[in-house]
Design a protein around this nucleic acid. Structure first.
Lengths: 338, 338
DNA sequence: AGCTTTTCATAAAACGTTTTACGGGAGGCT
DNA sequence: AGCCTCCCGTAAAACGTTTTATGAAAAGCT
């Protein structure tokens, strides 16, 4: 725990008997430095373990190498995977990532969105808690922003999302086709655009299956209560959870009540987690292409940071619908469709 | 996408008709600024949406408000939860977090550990890929570092970990007590300290149950192959997975082979994930206190960043052992113990 | 009024870089 | 020899802040 004086470019310069400018030139591989000096500087850098201060560098050169990522909740493995993928891509382009998670709280999201500006990132990738993003991005925030997964209220941003409506419709159609006559659709909140889109999609393809929607909120306790009510009071023939958390708690609640799929009721979930393939019977799901979303988001942000000023663009990726035992009426075989 | 000129403290100063120094004084709540000026500056700041540049601020003041976090893999929900918890704590203390994940790769970890220095964080919290951390932290890296979860090779760092050996011993003892005569213990790699500790703990309490260890590696394909071999060639009476990934793939493999616990063999896992309570029978696990680890890590780092120079300290937290159906011989009831 | 003290705003320096502009020396040409 | 390039290294300015030192005006005192 020695308190050595910090080593700066000056320290290196002195020790190598050159000027700071020369050290800078060596480190940034500028032409016109004598080979001998390059060598000398390099060795001093290695010896001292000197690393350029990115902040000072950015300050002078204006070249940023930091990008910000805002997700609703890092403890959700979907977002973890998203960030993880993003990070690999960013590093390839020489960027570091400042990651903040908003704990599913709109207030915190606002605060973090503000705080992150103080680091002057070159751009932002945001999965907003809900749609009201423009409130939280003052006009003075003039850096490229790519929004992912959830539609912002105003179409001022590039957007990467999935085809929520079609995918939900596929599940709905499948359930109807299997002969279920009633289905409860459960999702956190309709104010979140992807939940809304999924509900609308499901509704559009229900055929003569009667559909009802229940909003369960974001907090575990409340979700559990609402689902318990739903399953005990007038149990539907099918249950379709519109997001991961709701699906998880729905399955727990079913288990607690001694209900199993598809015997007591069919069960499907938008968003796929590992365990959904592990339980028996396995659960019918819609799997989102997380890695592809991350890749598309980074590419788009990359372009924007590079100065591209094309009109704002929306990209919808396709999910895969995985039909498994939890929704099959008879002992039919599971299949996969787009 | 307008390219406004960036707004700096000077812009604010001009517009408010004061000097930059005054603006700084207002923003940092220094005494001796006339109330009227405070008001004037505040309103211009709000109007322009000005946010202090943390980098420039740090450069001059030497006060850092950034801390680094290095985890092996963000797509692992345990680490996601860890980072998420950490972030809340950090924000409370006015810190932002630079999060990097090493994709379980020692080379990448080294590279990131190097790269992160360029941001001059005030301190680092690291969950290393393996033990050989000191290679990767050159002496010139003189900032406080708290290591979490895995012992570094040299005890130069503060450490927060769990009582791996005792907890694994508890599982081992439980299995032995239930009358299983042979148990295969599967873990990624013994070179990772917590896996090693768990194996040693398990071995210490096996009683007359014969134990054998199989190292499966970190990569899904290899893990699957090794476990498949183990379960088909000379199937033990019990299987104890020493980490989350191994546990997940072990369970998948069992399912694929049509084996179920505890009938065909008992199954237990170190590390608990949601699904382990959802499958039937539920799985016996050791649950690590992730949030507590994060809290302890931040507290310790906080102290160090505050200048505390006490001798390096190791903290071991207790896990809870959750005995469930997957290891119970008879139709016994599940119980919980420390 | 004349003095001291207090109050409060500012100019300028500094932080660690990169960049621009300059200059000294070596070599090539007439 | 004189001149013009070219090569290569450096001094100094600049980036956006905070801090230190300075000084002007206001207030308090006899």
């Amino acid at each position: 725990m020695k308190r050595r004086p910090p080593v700066s470019i000056k320290t290196v310069a002195e020790r190598a008997g050159v000027s700071p400018a020369t050290v800078s030139n060596v480190l940034n591989a500028k032409p016109s430095v004598a080979p001998e000096l390059i060598e000398r500087v390099r060795s001093v850098v290695a010896e001292l373990g000197y690393v350029t201060d990115s902040n000072a560098s950015r300050l002078r050169s204006g070249k940023h190498s930091l990008a910000g990522v805002v997700v609703p909740d890092l403890s959700n493995p979907m977002f973890g995977t998203f960030v993880s993928t993003l990070e690999t891509l960013a590093r390839e382009d020489g960027f570091d990532l400042l990651v903040v998670s908003a704990a599913n709280d709109v207030e915190q999201e606002k605060e973090r969105l503000h705080a992150i500006r103080s680091w002057r990132p070159a751009g932002l990738i945001v999965i907003p808690c809900d749609g009201a993003l423009s409130d939280r991005t003052p006009p003075s925030m003039h850096m490229p922003i790519v929004v992912v997964d959830r539609l912002p209220d105003e179409p001022d941003f590039d957007l990467i999302a999935v085809n929520n409506a079609q995918s939900a419709a596929a599940i709905s159609a499948h359930l109807s086709e299997q002969g279920y006559r009633s289905c409860t659709v459960a999702g956190s909140m309709l104010s979140i655009s992807n939940i809304r889109e999924r509900w609308e999609g499901a509704a559009s393809a229900a055929g003569d299956m009667t559909l009802s929607m229940v909003e369960v909120g974001l907090e575990a306790k409340g979700i559990r209560r609402r689902l318990h009510e739903t399953l005990t009071q007038r149990r539907p023939e099918a249950l379709f959870a519109l997001d991961h958390i709701t699906g998880l708690i729905a399955y727990q609640t079913m288990t607690d009540l001694g209900l199993s799929a598809p015997g007591d009721l069919a069960f499907a979930c938008f968003d796929e987690a590992e365990w959904m393939r592990l339980v028996r019977p396995a659960i019918t799901t819609v799997r989102q292409p997380i890695e592809e979303m991350a890749t598309a988001a980074w590419q788009q942000l990359s372009r924007r940071m590079g100065g591209n000023a094309d009109p704002v663009r929306t990209l919808r990726l396709a999910c895969s619908v995985e039909v498994r035992g939890s929704t099959l009426r008879e002992g039919g075989r599971s299949s996969t469709a787009a």
